[in-house]
Amino acid sequence: MISIQTEDFDTASEYTALRDSGAGTGAIATFTGLVRDHGDTQDVSGLFLEHYPGMTEQVIAGLIEEASRRWDVRKARVIHRVGRLLLREQIVFVGVCSAHRADAFAACEFIMDALKTSAPFWKKELAEDGEHWVEQKASDVARGEAWDK
């Protein structure tokens, strides 16, 4: 299930929902991304997140399908927030249920890495001295490409 939303999410209830994925689930891996105080500039006070409605959901659904072909995925959940987010707020959640931990870790990491380089979201950093659009990082591109090998 995929949600793109402005409101915050509760990781405890998301985890509880992931546990309800059948007796074959033996492992759950989750990732949560937060707004931190430094990025392209120091003293970041918040973020503005823009997305391409419709395409975003399609791209993420494709990533979950690909993860399900490559690993044992019993259930997957992706939440991504958009709009204005303050320091320390939650941005993104990825949760994957698998029979075993290796598949849960790999599928969760793959979805997160691929989301960063293929899902149409754009971050703008808000700081004391103004705001600017974040540049895509070569390290993120490399992490995304590493899964193609």
Binding site: G33, L49, H51, Y52, M55, H80, I91, V92, M112, L115, K116, T117, S118, A119, P120, F121, W122, K123, W133, V134, E135, Q136, D140
Partner: peptide, 10 residues
Amino acid sequence: VAFFPPVTGG
């Protein structure tokens, strides 16, 4: 058709 900068979500 959409044109946009490289994506930076997550």
